[in-house]
Design a protein around this nucleic acid. Structure first.
Lengths: 226, 226
DNA sequence: CCCCGGCCTGAGCCGCATCTGAACACGGCA
DNA sequence: TGCCGTGTTCAGATGCGGCTCAGGCCGGGG
């Protein structure tokens, strides 16, 4: 999962960036409204954390512009305590959730999980697919009850696949959602990690669709008699 | 499906060309208005992606000329951000959809799918014919609920046939819409792939009309006893 | 009835996407 | 500093999918 963090306070953004990173997100950071707007238009984020008090362009304006352009990415806004009007105008502009400073990073993480879940149209807090289960809260996964020992990237990969199970996911899309801006787009790490993941969860679960990408099939029996 | 990509920026066109190619389109590329006009007149495209800022002849002019000549191919225009006047004149000139740069290739693909669907006069997002179903979004097809395992070309072939079900399609037409410019027109790959497709979806579904071509019949239980 | 094309099909070649094992790089930790 | 766990790179192996070819089939016209 990839998140855009829009926050001008240097300390806070550094802290949040590492917290989000530790939680398994690929994080890009924008320090002002202009940069935020540009990045949001350019890169495909899964969720956006938007502080409202920003230099150059105000957070609400940025959000409004995104929504006017048809951008649907879930946005969580950060407001200073008691800035009620901000909160209201934020929601009016199309925010999906808000959080007043100061807050515990745990709460931010929880809300982001909820947002991602909602935007994917998933009801339950844990993902499952065949005998696979994944709990974003505990960052833990299992096959048939057997807990899996996954590295960070393996986990992120599985997470993304499970969030979009049944759909073909291109290598490009995976790179775009698992890594942040500066990453060598033509490298074969994805293939390597798909391989490693397969070794751990069973190779028949991730189907490769030649020329298009990979697909995690929700149905247990693979059944390709055709 | 075959698409004409008109774009002068070398980087962007290269990127789009591969993206479209990966998505299963046969892609021809024109770098300026003159070439675009020529190709558009010469080859039978299913859809055209047209950038407006072009050398030689402006995109709007090209589009206007096509429309004046009675060309009905759906056209999606690309405009720079905020070029409102461009957008308006583009629509006036007969564009069917527009997209402002920068954009996500995913969105372009989605809009193209919608255009193709519309231009074929099909309401639903998925095609069906007898027990056959095909979902362009997921790039998946099935017979009687049974998912099909199709290769890229088999899929494209089936897609084209389903888009034009009930009509006789000549081998020439198939070649023109499944391949790009430089392809050996007298080869029997089409026959080979029709054969393979029949093997997977049931041989009675694709009827061959001797001397003319093939026809995918919309009626389900016709003539398997005959 | 025979011949002439058009159509079908099995086999096989070849290029390329994907896979894989192993080495390398990097950072944390003892 | 040296070990370990992770992520990345690289090169070679592998197998799929697209294409060609050659021979057989079949329908229609003479």
């Amino acid at each position: 999962m990839r998140v855009l963090l829009v926050e001008d306070d240097a300390d806070l953004s550094r802290q949040l960036k590492t917290a989000l990173g530790d939680a398994g997100y690929a994080v890009d950071h924008a320090a002002d409204g202009e940069e935020a707007h540009f990045l949001g238009d350019t890169e495909p984020y899964d969720v956006i954390v938007l502080d409202l008090g920003l230099p150059k362009i105000d957070g609400v304006s940025v959000l409004e512009r995104w929504r006017r352009e048809g951008k649907a990415t879930p946005v969580l806004i950060l407001t200073a305590r008691g800035a009620w009007s901000d909160k209201v105008s934020g929601f009016d502009a199309g925010a999906d959730d808000y959080l007043t400073k100061p807050f515990h990073t745990e709460e931010l993480l929880a809300r982001l999980r909820a947002l991602l879940r909602r935007s994917a149209g998933i009801a339950s807090a844990t993902l499952s697919c065949g005998g696979l289960r994944l709990d974003p809260r505990a960052a833990r996964a299992s096959v048939n009850g057997e807990p899996l020992r996954l590295t960070s990237l393996e986990y992120r990969l599985l997470h993304y696949l499970m969030m979009h199970q049944g759909r073909v996911i291109s290598r490009t899309e995976l790179v775009e959602h698992l890594y942040d801006q500066d990453f060598d787009r033509d490298s074969n790490t994805i293939e390597v990690f798909v391989g490693r993941l397969r070794k751990k969860i069973g190779s028949d679960r991730i189907e490769t669709v030649r020329g298009l990408g990979y697909r995690l099939t929700p149905l247990a029996g693979e059944s390709d008699a055709a």
